[in-house]
Amino acid sequence: MGTSLTPEFWERFAVLLVLAMGLTCVLAAFFDDLAVRMLHRGTHRTPPTPHQPVRTDHRTSVHC
């Protein structure tokens, strides 16, 4: 026994399909933005610079 799909079914199907597509786009954009922020979080840090001793032309006195 075959059943026919009513116009009410197609209306609800279309509404749910559009809602599902919209939710998918919003969630994809959110998680994409979150992933980009996490990737950029580590790259903005500057590496520590090694300490360079100050060079002078004279020797330091060891007498107090």
Rank of each mutant, 00 (worst) to 15 (best):
M1V: 03
G2W: 08
T3P: 06
T3Y: 13
S4P: 11
S4G: 09
L5E: 03
L5I: 02
P7V: 02
P7A: 03
P7F: 05
W10Q: 05
W10H: 10
E11I: 07
E11L: 05
E11G: 05
R12C: 08
R12Y: 08
R12V: 04
F13V: 02
A14V: 09
A14E: 10
V15E: 14
L16R: 09
L16G: 11
L16D: 08
L17K: 12
V18F: 10
V18P: 06
V18W: 12
L19Q: 10
A20R: 14
M21E: 13
G22H: 12
L23V: 01
L23D: 01
T24W: 14
T24G: 10
C25H: 10
A28S: 11
A29R: 14
A29V: 14
F30K: 14
F31Y: 13
D32Q: 14
D32T: 15
D32P: 08
D33E: 14
D33S: 15
L34R: 11
A35Q: 13
A35I: 13
A35F: 15
V36F: 13
V36K: 09
V36Y: 12
R37F: 08
R37A: 05
R37E: 13
R37N: 08
L39H: 03
L39W: 07
H40K: 15
H40W: 12
H40A: 15
R41H: 10
G42D: 10
G42W: 00
G42E: 06
T43I: 06
H44T: 11
H44D: 10
R45F: 01
T46L: 09
T46R: 12
P47I: 01
P47K: 01
P48W: 08
T49N: 02
T49K: 03
P50G: 08
P50N: 04
H51V: 02
H51M: 03
Q52L: 02
P53F: 04
P53L: 02
P53M: 06
P53Q: 04
P53N: 04
V54M: 01
R55W: 00
D57W: 06
D57Y: 13
H58G: 09
R59E: 06
R59Q: 06
R59G: 07
T60M: 11
T60N: 08
T60Y: 08
T60P: 03
V62P: 06
H63W: 09
H63Y: 10
H63I: 13
C64G: 14
